[in-house]
Structure formats: C-alpha cells, structure tokens
Design a protein around this nucleic acid. Structure first.
Lengths: 247, 247
DNA sequence: TCTTGACATTCACGTTACGTCATGGTTTAT
DNA sequence: ATAAACCATGACGTAACGTGAATGTCAAGA
C-alpha cells in the first residue's frame, strides 16, 4: 500500500513540490523508486512526514528537524525548551514593536511631529547607550548627594514609613498589570510612586522617564522588578511614560 | 557635508551593502555620484534613511516602506494600524506554538507516547473543524434541551444568583490573568466555573474542553470574553484544559 | 614619490523553503 | 486511441541582504 507523491501530499496537506524538496535535501526519501522513476512512499515514510510537519508547525527549521529525527539520542526536550525560549523572545520583540507603533500613532494623532531624534530613540544603539548613561549620570552626579542628604535628615520612623509606602505602591501596581497604563488607578499609583521618589530628591520629568527606561533596560533594576512579576519592568516603564506625558 | 557609504552606514548602524541594496532597488538613492563613481549622501538622504530604518524596525517590508515614503497622501496611521493587527496575529500564533510545545514536553516527560493522531491534532484543519463541529453538536443537540429544562425549573432568585456567581467567577479570573493556569487559585476558580456550567447541564470532560476551545476560537464567544480582557479567551482555554486534565 | 591600508566600485553566488512554469515521459480512463 | 491526470527533472523567483572576489581610488606616512 504505497503512496505516490500526489497521494501522500494530499494526505498531509502539502504540495508535491514539498515532497520533491524534502527528497532533494534528504529529509524524507521515498521508500522506493519505480522503474519509471516514480517516488513511492510507504506508511513508515508517511509517519516520518507527520513528524516533520509536526516540528515544522513548531517553527523549527528543516535543518533542525532533520537533526531531531536523525539522532535517536537527541535531547528533544532540551531542543523544544530552547525553541520555546526563542519564541518567547520573538513575542517580547513583537510586543515592543506594538508599543512603538502605539506611540507613533499617538504622535500622529496629536499632530506632534516627532523629531528625527525622537524617531530614532530606542533604535539607534549609540543613542540608546548615551541616553542610559545620561540617565545614570543625572541620577548619580547631582542627585545622589541630594538624595543621601535628605535621607539622613529622616528619623528611623520616617524611613520605615517611606520604605513601606514605596513597597506598597509596587505591590499595588503588581495587581494592575493587566490594565491599561493610562487607567486611572494605575496613574493614581504612579502619583504615589512620584511622591515616593520625591522623598529622596526632586526628579525632573526627564529623570522620571530615565528611571522608567532604566527599570526596563538595566539588568540590576529589571531583575529587582521582575522579582515582583516578570511583566513589571515593561509595565512600569509604560505607566511612567504615560504619567510623565500627563504632567 | 556629504557622507560616503561607510560614513553613513556607520552613522545609521547598517552595512554598506545595505545602502548598495537600497540604491539598487531605488529606495534610497545617493544625493550625488562622484566622477569616480562613488556614492555621496547628504543630510536629506540621511534623514530619509532614518525614516526607512524606523519603519523597518516596525517590521514593514521595504516595499511597504517605499510606498509610505513615496506618497505624501498615504494614510500612515491606517498602515500602522493594519500592521499592528498583523503583529498581534503573529503573537497569537506564537502563543499557540508555545502551548503546543508545552504539551509536547509534558507528554515526553510522562513517557506517554503521543500517537500520530494526537500529534496531528490541532494541526490538521479537517480534524480541527470536525472537533469544533462535534463540540457544537454536543452542546446543541442533547444539551440545549436539558439546559433549558433546568433553567426553567429555577426561581427568579435562583437565576439571579447563578448569573451573579458566574459573573463573579469571570471577574475573579480576570484578576489572575498573569498567573499560571495551573495556579491553585486559578484552578479553584475553574472549579466554580464548572459548578456554574452544571447549573445548566451536566458537561462531560470533552464538552468542557470543547467549551474552552470555543471560547478561544469562535468569534462570538471570543468577543464576549475579550470584552472582559483581551487575553481572557486564551487564558480561559488554557485554564480549562488544565482543569480537565486534573479531573 | 612610493607604498600601504582603508576605502570605493561592480558582479555574482548563497541563504530558506518552497512556488511556479517549462518540457517531456507515463499511467489511467474512456 | 486519445485525452486527462499524473510523474519526472531542471531552473528561475522570492526578501533582504551577507559574503567573497576582482579591481579601482584616496589619504597618509616613510
């Protein structure tokens, strides 16, 4: 009970060309070849095709699929895990793009023309690096001194209260991760966040924005907020951007 | 103040080859060409490159970018909106793939060999269609009568309570969208959901699973749950799958 | 001035996973 | 016998460049 190309192709919902190609690259050879040169596939071949298509659905390259099917000792689970990671990254990237598109649309609507600088922000690596450095410098040079001066002026009670309030704000926000950053409750929490920062120093809008950026981009910050929830850094950054837009 | 290929390339963080290519396809022509055949780009060209790269970051094809930059009357916002949709779809698809990978890994761990049939489920369009149809038929034929019989037997008070409880369950779930579907609280809510369904009829595990499927795939259902939250349909389906696995 | 190294140019093939003719032989059904 | 439907093998096209290869040009140091 062998299949011809068309038969197997119809069965598996691919085109004959696909089978030709898989033969050509050695991924799926016919089980036999007739004297007329026709390809014939048996059930074993059909099963292999199923597996190929299965992995293909998972978006693996034919090379990878070949490797998986070739070695019986291959660690399929590890491979799938790794691939899962890759997919997650793609999703992250796509979410970033959607963010950017949303911002762009907002700008278009507001007739606020984005300057080329703005357009490039977040895309140009150098600009990015400079931006972060500036934020760090702003946060560092002027501010750190001011911050430690203010902090020292507080009583132990004050300090405990301030830290508790800050923590509460972050926990509140963690419960609103599924909302729109523009949501009134979220923005109210951002107001409390702003107050919390002001307990240390007086941040300019740019510094606030820089903080949001750092929360998302700088590993040490990101790790802290990710500990609260994996989506926290991105959410915070969006909420901060929104908050500063509204100031 | 003109740039050579290398200079502009470095500035924009692309390779010279990219500029060659953009010239070749007419997307970005040099502002002038020297007697030696060298390409020279002025600031206008540089700006255009910025815009090209901006749109490229949004994952638009060079063709589309060319169209956008060509026509001043082009509806950029509409284009971006459409592209946003496309990105969302990709994300949906990627999430689907991740789901499948997770299932596959589970099967691998449990040494439960997936039959070819199982492997194919969800990929084969025909199987898919048949599955949905069966779910609809099950839900329809036997069940609808039973459902309306039970419903009529309730008092107005009962009805109000049942609806309120159901609504509450969905709202509870909406606050747990960021959790794992296997989370204890989520699964507890799924238990309440099950009870809610049982107020109408006695669902078999397959029917429950079919419901989860329908919530995600059938537009009318999906629209209802998306109104609660965009991620609700997918989350519900995963939670239901998990719940039924545990029954 | 000569040489060297960094830059410039134009081919032109490689990449992925097939789609799409083109040309010609084979099988099957009428 | 003839047409329809299938088979085969090239071979080019796709998107957006990467990667040589062969060769010409320019700025700078010995």
């Amino acid at each position: 009970m062998d299949y011809t190309v068309k038969q197997l192709a119809d069965l598996a919902d691919v085109t004959p060309r696909t089978l030709h190609y898989y033969d050509e690259i050695g991924l799926l050879r016919p089980s036999s070849i007739g004297e007329n040169g026709y390809r014939y596939y048996n059930d074993t071949a059909a099963l292999r095709l199923q597996q190929i298509l299965f992995y293909r659905e998972l978006d693996l390259s034919l090379d990878e699929i070949g490797a998986i099917l070739a070695s019986a000792g291959f660690d399929v689970e590890a491979a799938l895990h790794q691939h899962r990671q890759a997919l997650q990254q793609r999703i992250s990237r796509l979410n970033h793009l959607i963010d950017t598109i949303d911002n762009t649309i907002q700008h278009l609507r507001g007739e606020k023309e984005m300057s080329t600088q703005e357009l490039f922000q977040g895309f140009d690596d150098e600009t990015q690096a400079r931006y972060e450095q500036e934020a760090a410098e702003l946060y560092g040079a002027e501010t750190v001194r001011e911050s430690s001066r203010r902090w020292k002026s507080y009583t132990a009670e004050d300090k405990a209260r301030i830290m508790a309030e800050g923590g509460q704000t972050y926990r509140d926000l963690a419960h609103m991760l599924d909302r729109d950053p523009a949501d009134a409750d979220v923005q109210a929490a951002m107001g409390r966040w702003h107050q919390h920062i002001r307990a240390f120093y007086e941040p300019t809008p740019d510094i606030l924005r820089g903080l949001g950026h750092a929360y998302e981009e700088q590993p040490e910050f990101a790790a802290f907020y990710e500990a609260i929830h994996p989506d926290m850094p991105g959410f915070l950054r969006r909420a901060i951007d929104r908050y500063v837009d509204m100031l």
